[in-house]
Amino acid sequence: MLISNMEVVPGKKVVKHLGLVQGSTVRAKHAGRDIMAGLKNIFGGELKGYTELLSESRDEALSRLQQQAELLGANAILNVRFSTSSIAAGASEIFVYGSAVVVEER
């Protein structure tokens, strides 16, 4: 599955547009990560626990996006965008969306 943030892919022709597809996940912070984040806020540095959480969340949202596109018969998802939002205290959503298409194989 080709996944791109571009509207077109050089050298490939979009032959069918299948519509909007999306994937999301909502994750809560871990108490242990919060304690370490609090210490990092005092001393500075990367919040590695949160970096890992964000990476896992992006991967899960992308996987759900791809699954939805495959169900529609797409072989590519174009114009992919990510969004984040706070759902509740300590919980955030990662949302990814794009256009499911069929591109010519050359």
Rank of each mutant, 00 (worst) to 15 (best):
G90W: 01
L47T: 04
S4T: 10
V103H: 01
I3C: 09
R27W: 14
G11F: 06
A89E: 04
T84H: 01
R58T: 15
R33M: 10
Q68G: 09
I42M: 05
E7H: 08
G44I: 07
E60W: 08
G73Y: 05
T51V: 15
E56C: 04
E60K: 09
G23T: 02
N79K: 05
L65F: 00
N75R: 05
F95I: 00
V101S: 01
A69G: 04
Q67S: 13
T25F: 13
V96L: 04
K40A: 07
R58K: 15
G73V: 03
F82P: 01
R64M: 01
S92E: 07
H17D: 14
V96A: 01
G90A: 07
S57W: 12
H30K: 13
S4F: 02
R27P: 09
V15E: 12
G32Q: 01
G38E: 07
H17V: 12
D34H: 06
G11L: 05
E93W: 03
G38P: 05
G90V: 07
V101R: 05
I35D: 13
E105R: 08
Q67Y: 07
A31F: 02
N5P: 14
H30R: 14
D59M: 11
S4Q: 00
L78M: 08
Y97M: 04
E52L: 11
A69Q: 04
L18D: 07
V21Y: 01
R106Y: 01
K48F: 11
H30N: 15
L72P: 00
V8Q: 15
M6P: 00
D59W: 10
N75L: 12
I35G: 08
E60V: 06
P10E: 14
G23L: 03
H30E: 15
N75V: 07
A37H: 02
V14A: 06
F82A: 03
L20P: 09
G45F: 14
H17K: 15
K48L: 15
I3N: 10
F95H: 09
V14F: 08
G98Q: 02
G98S: 01
V15F: 03
H17A: 06
L71D: 09
L39F: 10
R64F: 10
R33E: 15
S99E: 12
V80K: 09
D59R: 14
V21H: 04
V15M: 08
E52A: 14
V14T: 11
I77C: 04
L39T: 05
M1N: 10
V9I: 13
T84S: 08
S92I: 03
T84W: 01
A61P: 09
K12Q: 12
L2N: 12
S24T: 07
N5Y: 14
G49E: 10
V9L: 11
R106I: 01
A88K: 12
G90S: 03
S99H: 04
S83N: 05
L71S: 06
N79A: 15
V80R: 13
F95L: 10
S4R: 06
G45V: 13
L65E: 04
E46K: 12
K40M: 11
A91F: 00
G73F: 10
V14Q: 11
A76F: 06
E52K: 13
K16M: 07
G38M: 05
V103D: 01
Q67I: 02
G98W: 00
S92H: 06
L54G: 12
Q22T: 14
L39W: 09
Q22A: 11
L39K: 07
L62G: 00
M36A: 15
L47C: 03
P10H: 06
I35W: 11
N79F: 12
H17F: 10
L47R: 13
